[in-house]
């Protein structure tokens, strides 16, 4: 297949995926969602009033019509107003998405750097005590529940039973000091849990690299260990690393931070999505499903491009 064929194939796949995700999401979260008309109608509504509200919310239309309307909203990225707060959905996303990003990014970035370091140390010390120690640490990180870490860290770092360094919950980010103190405990939680999985991943990637002939050749030419790592091993590991990092972006963006946000009382997108599900707020749900599928499609398409930038062999 030539390059334009590949691009077309990728585009086709992305469109199929967006259609699938939006349809399944629509079916589950919107079509089968609890019927809000009785709640919105107030006390002792007449049959007419209920009919009117059902019409307003679009409940009276058949499924294909409602889904097509949804696709139209998706194309214009205009999902109207939230059923529960009356806020414009795009404004709600613009308000909550940056909060989630600010909450998760430090832990995500530091987690990958830490895991890369630990993975490299473990890979170089294969079978020795450093490797075993790191395996124990990452195995522990993988076995403790995210919730347990979150609660324990709050207790240790942000309560009077522990160090009491940071505020126990809430979210303020007007000044850097406020931001740092509120993001500290969530970041430590993400670091602890994600480095368990990521360390294993990086170790496996690096172990495979260390065995390659070109790495041995670089060492034989007198490259130091550090230089080999940064100049040879790291660039050659970029493909799996990029894949892992990029494919976790949509999940962060949307499902993101439900637990952290609801436990620490942070007004991010995970919390508002969860609230939308429990209250049947269809416009918000439609927007979130659309956003996550579009993000995934963008990642799928850009991964192919990036592969070709990173790996000259794929340029052809």
């Amino acid at each position: 297949m030539n390059t334009s064929g590949l691009v077309r194939h990728g585009l086709l796949q992305a469109v199929a995926l967006v259609l699938g995700v939006t349809f399944l999401g629509f079916l589950l979260m919107v079509y089968f969602a609890p019927d809000l008309s009785y709640q919105l109608a107030g006390k002792n509504p007449t049959a007419e009033q209920i009919q009117q509200i059902r019409q307003q919310l679009g409940y009276d239309q058949p499924l294909p019509v409602r889904y097509l309307q949804y696709l139209q909203e998706l194309a214009t990225f205009d999902f109207g107003y939230s059923d529960s707060s009356g806020e414009r959905v795009t404004a709600l996303l613009a308000r909550t998405l940056p909060v989630s990003a600010a909450l998760l990014l430090p832990g995500f970035i530091l987690g990958h750097i830490l895991a890369m370091g630990l993975g490299a140390v473990a890979a170089y010390g294969r079978g020795r005590w450093t490797d075993r120690l790191i395996a124990v640490v990452s195995g522990t990180g993988m076995s403790i529940s995210f919730i347990v870490v979150m609660i324990a860290f709050q207790l240790v770092f942000a309560s009077s039973y522990g160090l009491n360094w940071f505020p126990a919950r809430g979210w303020q980010w007007a000044t850097p000091a406020q931001y740092l103190s509120h993001v500290a405990v969530p970041t430590l939680t993400i670091l602890f849990v994600s480095s368990g999985y990521n360390t294993r991943f990086y170790r496996a990637v690096f172990v495979e690299q260390i065995g390659q002939d070109y790495v041995k050749a670089a060492r034989a030419f007198g490259y130091s260990r550090t230089r080999t790592f940064f100049r040879v091993i790291l660039p050659n590991s970029l493909l799996p690393v990029l894949t892992r990092v990029l494919y976790s972006v949509p999940a962060i963006l949307v499902g993101g931070s439900l637990l952290l946000e609801s436990y620490f009382g942070i007004p991010g997108v995970g919390k508002s999505t969860f609230d939308a599900i429990t209250s049947g707020d269809q416009p918000v749900l439609k927007a979130v499903i659309a956003l996550s599928s579009l993000a995934l499609a963008v990642v799928m398409l850009s991964v192919d491009r990036l592969y070709r930038v990173v790996d000259p062999r794929l340029r052809g």
Binding site: S194, Y197, I252, G255, L258, L259
Partner: peptide, 16 residues
Amino acid sequence: DPGPAEPSPAEPSHGT
């Protein structure tokens, strides 16, 4: 990890 690029769905490792 034998799974896809993401961590296993069971694990909210990125803060879900």
